[in-house]
C-alpha cells in the first residue's frame, strides 16, 4: 500500500521534472544552422576541394604518385631555354610546361596525401565543400593553363630545339671525328720519317 502511494507520487513528480527540463529548453537558443543561408564555419584543417596554384606548379608529378586513388593525372613538356615557364613565387626555376593537370574530384578521397610531398606547396585543400554537379565529367577539374595551340606550339618548339640540339651534337660529333682524323693525319704527316724507318 505504501509502495502504491510512492508510485503515484513518483509518477507525478517525475513528469513535472521532465516538464521543467523541456520548458527550460523551450527558451534555449536553437542550435540549428540555417544551412543554405548561413554556412557553418569549417575547422582550421578541414579537407575539402583540392586547388592547384598553377603559377607555382613545376610539374614534378609527386602529387600524382602520392595519390592512393590515382585521381591526379599530369603531363609535362620540357621547355626550351629561350622560352621558359619562368619562376615559382619562391624563386625556383620551372623547367617543365605542364600541359595537363587533371584532378578527378569524384575519385578523390580527401586524404590530403598529395599536399605533403609538393615541393612548392602549390596543391592544397580548400574549405569549399559545395561542388556537386549533374554530369560526372564536370567533376574532372582541369587546372592546366596552356591552350591546345600553345601546347602544339611548345611541342613544336621543343621538337625543333631537340632537332637543333641533335644536329649540333651530330655536327659536334662529326667535327670531333673530323678533328680526330685530321689529328691522325697530322701525326702521320709529322713523323713520316719514323714511318719510313
Amino acid at each position: 500500500m505504501k509502495q502504491y502511494f510512492i508510485n503515484t507520487w513518483e509518477g507525478l513528480w517525475t513528469v513535472l521534472v521532465g516538464m521543467k527540463i523541456t520548458f527550460k529548453h523551450l527558451f534555449d537558443p536553437a542550435v540549428t544552422i540555417q544551412y543554405p543561408d548561413v554556412k557553418p564555419t569549417m575547422p582550421e584543417r578541414a579537407r575539402n576541394r583540392l586547388f592547384v596554384n598553377m603559377d607555382d606548379c613545376i610539374g614534378c608529378d609527386q602529387c600524382a604518385r602520392a595519390c592512393p586513388v590515382n585521381c591526379i593525372s599530369i603531363e609535362t613538356l620540357k621547355s626550351t631555354p629561350d622560352d621558359t615557364p619562368g619562376e615559382t613565387s619562391q624563386g625556383k626555376k620551372k623547367a617543365l610546361w605542364v600541359t595537363k593537370f587533371d584532378i578527378d574530384i569524384a575519385k578523390c578521397c580527401f586524404c590530403s596525401l598529395c599536399v605533403y610531398p609538393c615541393p612548392t606547396e602549390c596543391i592544397e585543400m580548400t574549405k569549399v565543400y559545395e561542388f556537386s554537379e549533374f554530369e560526372r565529367n564536370d567533376l574532372i577539374y582541369k587546372f592546366a593553363v596552356l591552350t591546345p595551340e600553345e601546347i602544339t606550339d611548345k611541342t613544336q618548339k621543343y621538337d625543333e630545339f631537340q632537332a637543333a640540339k641533335e644536329a649540333e651534337k651530330l655536327a659536334a660529333a662529326k667535327a670531333k671525328a673530323e678533328k680526330a682524323k685530321q689529328d691522325a693525319a697530322k701525326k702521320a704527316d709529322d713523323n713520316p720519317d719514323k714511318k719510313a724507318e
Binding site: T22, H25, L26, F27, P29, A30, T32, Q34
Partner: peptide
C-alpha cells in the same frame, strides 16, 4: 514550433 524549440531546433522556417 513548440516541439522544435523544446528540442533546441527551429522548426519550419
Amino acid at each position: 514550433k513548440v516541439s522544435a524549440h523544446m528540442q533546441d531546433r527551429l522548426g519550419p522556417m
